[in-house]
């Protein structure tokens, strides 16, 4: 918690990290200044890209005391404005799950190696990033907590599976290795409340630790203040729940 009489500083910059299969990708890294030790956060961007909102979210985690690293999952599509790059990836049907998991594993390893990170590292994502975050927490050992905000296609029908997405994230639930916080909108159809209930059923079946919140009068992406789906009250409460969850599972930041 920042107090008015304390020193506060932050470093935020782009860095290069090894990602999937050792490919170097860029990432946006924001961390509090100081010796730490700080808990870490891997921050996974949404389908609209590695954009300004995600840089803000990454700095928000740093403001709250986390060394926060947001890998550019669209690095291989080329460079331009975040929107130009996201258009290309959208046309390609998104990135492959294995590649995204490899890149998130690279981000996790980068944070684990830092002397001022305490080894407790969470992963957060919204939209496709929420789905990716869940995949990471199921497929990679090493995360201490995961936050999935309205990640759709966690529950997938067989006809939705594809070479890029060959396994529904739901089917990895037995391997979920850390507590999960899920935030969803009751008016969202991707995921629908029924799909969220199916996910919850699977978590219970495997005895996983989780907290799910279904916000009324909210649809998809209700944190995004620049989009019409923004819901102020639900977004404020959602961020409070995120930091309470992280405080509980990663410990109070320095």
């Amino acid at each position: 918690m920042v107090k008015t009489d304390m020193y506060e500083g932050m470093l935020a910059e782009t860095v290069m990290i090894p990602g999937h299969q050792g490919d170097y990708i860029n990432a946006y890294f924001a961390r509090p200044l100081g010796a730490g030790p700080f808990p870490g956060m891997v921050v996974i961007h949404h389908m609209p890209g590695w954009d300004e909102w995600y840089r803000e979210a990454t700095r928000k985690f740093a403001y709250h005391g986390y060394a926060a690293l947001s890998p550019n999952l669209y690095f291989r599509a080329g460079h331009g404005t975040p929107e130009d790059v996201a258009v290309k990836v959208r046309a390609e049907g998104g990135v492959a799950d294995d590649q995204a998991v490899g890149d998130m594993g690279g981000a996790l390893a980068y944070l684990q190696a830092l002397p001022y990170v305490n080894g407790k590292i969470g992963v957060f994502g919204t939209c496709s990033g929420g789905r990716h975050a869940y995949l990471a927490a199921c497929r990679l050992p090493g995360f201490t907590a995961v936050i999935d905000c309205w990640g759709g296609h966690v529950v997938m029908a067989p006809e939705e599976l594809s070479p890029k997405r060959p396994v529904a994230p739901l089917d990895y639930t037995a391997n979920l290795s850390c507590p999960l916080l899920g935030l969803f909108g009751a008016e969202d159809q991707h995921p629908s409340p029924e799909q969220v209930a199916r996910h919850e059923e699977e978590l219970q079946k495997h005895g996983k630790t989780y907290e799910f919140y279904m916000y009324p009068d909210a649809g998809h992406g209700f944190f995004y203040y620049h989009r019409p789906n923004y819901r102020q009250e639900q977004a404020v409460d959602g961020w409070q729940k995120i930091f309470a969850f992280l405080d509980q599972h990663l410990g109070s930041p320095a």
């Binding site: 389908m47 929107e83 258009v87 959208r90 046309a91 789906n229």
Partner: peptide, 17 residues
């Protein structure tokens, strides 16, 4: 590229882009 997915500007959750 023709998609039915999230738009960047139109005030819709999904659009024909």
């Amino acid at each position: 590229y023709v998609s039915y997915d999230h738009p960047f500007h139109a005030p819709l959750e999904h659009a024909l882009n």
